[in-house]
Design a protein around this nucleic acid. Sequence first.
DNA 1: AACAATAATTAGAATAATTCTTGATTGGGT
DNA 2: ACCCAATCAAGAATTATTCTAATTATTGTT
Lengths: 142, 142
Amino acid sequence: MVSKAPDSRSAQEIPEEIAGLRMTRQRQEIYRILIEQRNHPTANEVFMRAKDHLPNISLATVYNCLEAMVQHGIIRQVHFERESSRYCPNLREHGHFHDASTGVIHDVDFKPGVSLSDVLDLPPGAVIEDIEITLRGKIPTP
Amino acid sequence: MVSKAPDSRSAQEIPEEIAGLRMTRQRQEIYRILIEQRNHPTANEVFMRAKDHLPNISLATVYNCLEAMVQHGIIRQVHFERESSRYCPNLREHGHFHDASTGVIHDVDFKPGVSLSDVLDLPPGAVIEDIEITLRGKIPTP
DNA sequence: AACAATAATTAGAATAATTCTTGATTGGGT
DNA sequence: ACCCAATCAAGAATTATTCTAATTATTGTT
């Protein structure tokens, strides 16, 4: 017996610590869920998936873990109108396009070399700390 | 006596109908509040102000009126994270900058001639129906 | 290894914005 | 004046999220 193989599912090894945040079992599982299926789930969707591997996890813990990871800059929150917050492990600066036909949320990158201040008439002296760009529309199938 | 002067406050005359929506007394009052003080109030803030002139108005009515005006494209909803929706009568395509020091929300216009698709790597074929750009930051006072 | 101190987790209660339901009121058209 | 549809008001219901308090896990220390 060479390997302990504690869990055969793990295609991804999550470190014990990320960005100064201790990655507990719950946080690892939640982070794994976010990076393995990048479909911008809500806290409740994460909760339902997390129960497969951690049957005793609570929704409050899912909220706590997501919040901790957001605070440490490990993941980002995504908002559409006032719908439930969604979570995204993509740390590139990017926006989101919500396809109203399919429900799919696409990450939308900036074109290379463009900066928001080239495009927007910001108040003089404004220092931007956070950006959220959300688009809604359709992708017609020809 | 020339004028009936039914209400001395009204610097603004609101028409009986806008964009196909019949402007009832409640809707007129709410719309007037939005255009007279463009500080992106929440429904509850609108409610409190509306009571000055319509003491019997209910919060549900404020929500109904705001929703009706949003549906008819007379005003826009503005969202920061999952905070209460805010309302804005500025129909130009624009974003919002929330100054975390003062709490003030500034309208942010696009620079002339720029289009979002110049800047963003949209999914091929995407047809945008709605855009929300929200920025958070500070404006340092030197 | 035992211990204390700290951090994380859990379950359920509490909160807050918004929506829904129902009944009353209003307003325009005949 | 009367009818019909639209609007409004009041309060209940809903829902995502946060809070509270008690338990469990982890870390550092002897």
